[in-house]
Write a protein that binds this DNA or RNA. Structure first.
Lengths: 64, 64
DNA sequence: TATATTTGTAAAACAAACTTTACATCAAAT
DNA sequence: ATTTGATGTAAAGTTTGTTTTACAAATATA
């Protein structure tokens, strides 16, 4: 499962800490997701989508 | 987090066991998700979406 | 260059997702 | 009515997601 969080953050000029804050998780969680250590929960994926006004599939992609 | 799995299953005439099988989880997991006991992981949500050819948001909805 | 901010990482602990086994209930059924 | 298939549920266990604390490394900025 790949994701575009780092790029989306850059486009919105946000730090990992700010994204964590806006989505209600810790900065380490954002970092771990960006680094591919694990996938977010579905509710957290929805919060990313809502924040960036994108579909979940526009942020996360199955890497077959 | 609400979901339309039960309806989608009905539309596709599938049992919980069949859906479990096609998405690689146990029947109890399908049952628990349908009954709202917990949300699926993001990868599992993707598998549902792929199977039913729907966006994740067409299957799962934030209940505000 | 020194200092501040951001990012990477790690360990311990807890929470949520998921499995296995097992049994009970419900609805066709015919 | 009893069997058969589907669903509901529960307990114990494993794995994955997440937090907290803490520190090191990288990047920006003064």
């Amino acid at each position: 499962m790949k994701n575009r969080l780092k790029v989306l953050r850059a486009e919105h000029d946000m730090t990992q800490a700010q994204l964590a804050d806006e989505t209600g998780v810790s900065r380490q969680t954002i970092n771990a997701i960006e680094k591919g250590k694990f996938d977010p929960s579905l509710p957290l994926a929805f919060r990313f989508a809502k924040l960036f006004k994108l579909k979940i599939e526009e942020i996360f992609q199955d890497e077959e």
